[in-house]
Design a protein around this nucleic acid. Sequence first.
DNA 1: CTTTGGGCCTGGACGC
DNA 2: TGCGTCCAGGCCCAAA
Length: 282
Amino acid sequence: MPELPEVETVMNGLRQFLLGKKIVRAKLFTPKIRNIVPKKISKTVENHRVLGVYRRAKYMVFDMDDGHSIIVHLGMTGVFRTILPNQKKFEKDIHDHFLMQTEDGVEIVFRDPRRFGVLDVLKTEEVSRSKYLGHLGIEPLSREFTAKKLHADLARRSLPIKQAIMDQKIVVGVGNIYASEALFKSRIDPRRAANTLDESELTTLVKNIKSVLREAIKNGGSTLRDYRNIGGERGYFQMHFEVYDREGKPCPDCTCDWEKIGGIKRIVQGSRSTFYCETKQR
DNA sequence: CTTTGGGCCTGGACGC
DNA sequence: TGCGTCCAGGCCCAAA
């Protein structure tokens, strides 16, 4: 499940192969994933150089030297495979949607079995105002993401805090896994209405959102020395989670009678699973 | 304006 | 072994 840390790691891996490089070949295999991919995407990148590679929220953006940019969202199952010149040549899988080859002979393949991802072409000057990036909230790892700001932004929001921190208009990059994890670390009940948290609680939450994301990036960065395995055959890098997907198990350093209580709870919020500890999270 | 629920899509886990 | 069913989740959109 690519959330901010996974996207950041994938982007850093791609950057080394793409930044400053000319794309010599491109091919679109699939006309529609979540969006209809413009046919012109191949022509947009072919014989053009990559001037910039960056991430915003869970999107990756590649600026080309012709005034266009490619924007990519990994959706649920999107991955990039990279094939180096000394490796077995690219063989198309049914879920491969787009191929780029650089002047160095590196083949970069976007694959997304469930096709929840996005692959689109925008004018570079319009990227930040686009339908993808135009209405996004703050980057959680920025200095400007503070308890004070979050408190103000949640003032009129009565939805559960878990759903609030997953709302990309409020803060970006936090998905279902890290939302549960950050709330557990903060000892905050995921069901609480967002506008009932005071600034001291939000100070803790902001701190833990940042630390959970940073830790995952660090973990990914080290796990992914062989970057090609990022989100590759073995899935996204394996983290040990404190509550996510641990229904019925004791939470870390559990001191309560967890077998009697039933361990970590799983509930559904906004048709997503939430995992939390009834005893520790209030 | 906010909140809720359905839909997109496929592979894997599960039950019979 | 082979079905059918459900679930996973990011994000958009329609409806309340």
